[in-house]
């Protein structure tokens, strides 16, 4: 059995010096994509059983323990959890969902997640995302683009954002965020 930390090593990178905001790769993040009828009581019960979280409102996220559930679309949520927990979340959701018309997939390896934090974190993202991040609530979720890469953004705290994109763009996104977080460029923003 290969070591997990080794398996995810491609996403472990050290940021360059002189950044005006912190940039980290969250390499142990697991993800589960779930589609179905978000308004259905059975769906909510299965999600609760699998994650402890309620179904989030439109463009919001809910949190419980190690899990965060993000609203992705009218019929889709994304679960953030520990990488090793994702298969269990899928199994638990599917078991509880029974015959319902749903889709639950472990997609932990499909995407890369980065955390950008600091007082000017939102300014870093606003260099490439056409989104009013200054007025973006904690827990709010936005699917948009950064530069030309399809990106999801969730504000996890006053000064903290998580950014996710398809894994093949990870190297690009990492470089992009590190350039955008340059201290000089944030000094007058």
């Amino acid at each position: 059995m290969s070591d997990l930390s080794l398996a995810r090593a491609a996403l472990d990178v050290t940021p360059p010096p002189d950044l005006g905001a912190q940039v980290e790769a969250l390499s142990s993040r697991g993800m589960v994509a779930i589609r179905g009828d978000l308004a259905d009581a059975g769906f909510a019960a299965a999600l609760k059983a699998a994650t402890g979280c309620d179904v989030p409102g439109v463009r919001r996220s809910t949190e419980a323990g190690e899990c965060r559930v993000l609203w992705m679309s009218t019929d889709e949520v994304m679960i953030f959890c520990e990488w090793s927990a994702a298969p269990g979340v899928v199994a638990s959701f599917m078991e509880k969902a029974g015959d319902a018309h749903v889709l639950a997939l472990d997609v932990s390896d499909a995407r890369a997640v980065f955390r950008v934090s600091g007082e000017k974190a939102w300014r870093v993202l606003a260099k490439g995302a056409p989104v009013d991040l200054e007025r973006f609530g904690v827990g709010e979720v936005r699917r948009t683009r950064i530069a030309t890469v399809a990106t999801g953004i969730v504000r996890t705290g006053d000064d903290s954002f998580e950014v996710f994109c398809f894994r093949s763009f990870a190297a690009y996104m990492w470089d992009w965020l590190c350039v955008g977080a340059g201290a000089e460029s944030l000094s007058d923003l």
Partner: peptide, 19 residues
């Protein structure tokens, strides 16, 4: 062009085996 020049000119997708 803004930030998107040189290394950041255009996103390049890499497989896990790229390196």
């Amino acid at each position: 062009a803004g930030q998107e020049k040189g290394l950041l000119f255009k996103p390049v997708r890499q497989t896990a085996l790229h390196d």
